[in-house]
Design a binder for these strands. Structure first.
Lengths: 200, 200, 200, 200
DNA sequence: TATGAATGAGTTTTCATTCAT
DNA sequence: CATGAATGAAAACTCATTCAT
């Protein structure tokens, strides 16, 4: 009764994200996820129609989590460079806070999943795409504002965007929650690097 | 006669890198590679003892290619910031020139392959590790020199290192050889971003 | 309803033992076993993690079956030569009654299976080893008692043990259930031969 | 030049027998044999048309070796029990002297090789069959003579024959050339056991 | 003769998915 | 809801054999 009040889907999602993040999506079977969950495959298939859908749910949640942290900062009124720093800082914090979710996303950045997506999956993928577009647009907007005001260097915005975002993703590859307790320091250093990378 | 005079292993490696880079290592069967090669599985297994070994060979070649471009610049005598820029530029050029090889590497940065690597594979992985260490050490040395001379910001070097290297990897995810012909521009922009990211 | 109430594992084991005994373990694919079972490979792999484990299960069962026949006779109180005869008789009866299981065991007496056994397999192999040791120890004990009482010849016990046990295995190689119906005669002849072989 | 004056076929046969005896025929690839030989597959295929033929050659040689040891003793004039002892002794000596050849034979006693034998192989198999029949007939003759003279027990000859021959094969399963140097003792004990097993 | 490359058919194994209970 | 059994399709890997050199 008191074991948990979280929705079951969420519990499954957590276990799946952890398992997928540890060994890679393709190297992790539904059975592995079930084992990590202390249950059997059937339980998962009750809540998610396919492995693809499970992965999609994780990806969507990852994007939402990041978006939720960054959006309010984007909507606040600050001059471009400070706003950029804050957003970047929040992005890095997100990476480290919900590490496994974001690891799954990065893994999917390559790996086109070769077509066999169902209609329902494509729907979720579309939603994700919308969210990602919104996310990039926020950084793009700040970048353009900063260039217009002269505080940021004039440069190819698309290239810049993709590049510093990749840098802000870096902790996914090496951050270890137990070892490195200096999350704030890391977030600061990375946000500063990103900021300087685009400044005039 | 004119078909090719390259060693067979090299031809297989090229085809495999291309196939793996296109669809992801796990989504690409040895049969797929063989088909791309116009041959059968057996040919591949005659030259590489396992899929893992094939991937390892690709990874090793990728690191060697990058190393070969960057090492001479490191050994040249320039002041830290210029040397750093040149090395970063060369790194980005490498990413774009041998795109498929480097894509395979990045994919393996996560995905520990269930530990079931054979003794022979572990040997190759060790060799790769040595090369990668040398590579990082070159950038680390320049970074330290720059910090000592005051031209670079005082900062956590390990974090900085991993972060801007990740940024320099970025083209792997979006560069399209046919579309973007402005390789030099991209390399310049990214190298500049990396340089500014670490400057005082 | 009437088809069978035996546990599924047992049914698979029977079919596998029969198939392996007929054509040899290495010449019999898991597909062959599945076909003999009227099912698919998957069913077998659902119950046994590998072919090796399946073979191990058969071996273990074979030893248990023999042990169950011989142990009560060993525990009974008879003078050594009679006890030896009874035990040998029971051994031969076991060979002929569950022919296929024992055939698989004998085949594995040579053929170290390349050492690539999994941890779980080694566990079963250990259990088998314990049972086999118990089994040999029973005969060894009787032999020693008989030698002490002068009814058995003084001789190298280990060599004697391995040798007459091999002779008691003989029916495995030529007994045909349908043709030879004189199981008792065969068991008597072999038990008598074994007894005389060790007598003074 | 001085490396060896044995016919090449013989060298191959030795290496193959050793390899097959160590790991089992089915678990040993032609490549394994070639490696043990310090050569490549091609060499083997020059001298033997197929793996089956190689195995057949080993089997035939094994039977010939045993026959050559036992036949002269059979042709000598001794009374049945002494002659039987001598023949049995020689059989055991053969087992231990050319251990690997005989191990291969025993492995094939089960394992019907499922039909795919070529015409040429069947020819060799027939020759082997002839030799084996001659071999069994020698022991059968002695056995019958002994029964007629009353020195051997009246018994089912076929069963007796197969049974003590199996016992005389026993060293194949456990004899270690390097460890046990007491070949004569073992041969004596086993021959004696076999003799007593059939005596009145 | 002997080698190394290549093949093709087969074998073990994995796994997402379905379904009866 | 949840489980355990079962399936089928695919994947990695093996290996006897052939062949050009």
């Amino acid at each position: 009764m008191a074991t948990s009040n979280k929705p079951k889907k969420s519990i499954i999602l957590d276990a799946a994200a952890l398992a997928f993040a540890s060994n890679g999506v393709d190297q992790t079977s539904i059975d592995d996820v079930a084992r990590a969950l202390g249950a059997t495959k059937g339980k998962i298939y009750h809540h998610f129609r396919s492995k693809g859908e499970l992965v999609c749910a994780i990806r969507k949640y990852s994007v939402e989590l990041t978006l939720d942290r960054v959006r309010p900062l984007f909507k606040s009124s600050s001059e471009p460079s400070l706003k950029f720093y804050k957003m970047a800082f929040a992005h890095v914090e997100a990476m480290m806070s919900e590490l496994s979710y974001h690891r799954v996303v990065v893994e999917e950045m390559r790996g086109s999943e070769t077509g066999s997506t169902t209609a329902h999956e494509r729907e979720i993928l579309n939603e994700i795409s919308v969210l990602q577009t919104e996310y990039e647009m926020m950084f793009r907007t700040v970048l353009e504002a900063g260039i217009a005001s002269g505080v940021f260097r004039k440069q190819n915005i698309s290239v810049a965007l993709r590049s510093f975002l990749m840098m802000l993703h870096a902790p996914i590859y090496w951050y270890e929650p137990r070892t490195d307790e200096n999350e704030k320091d890391i977030a600061d250093q990375l946000a500063l690097m990103a900021l300087k990378a685009v400044c005039a």
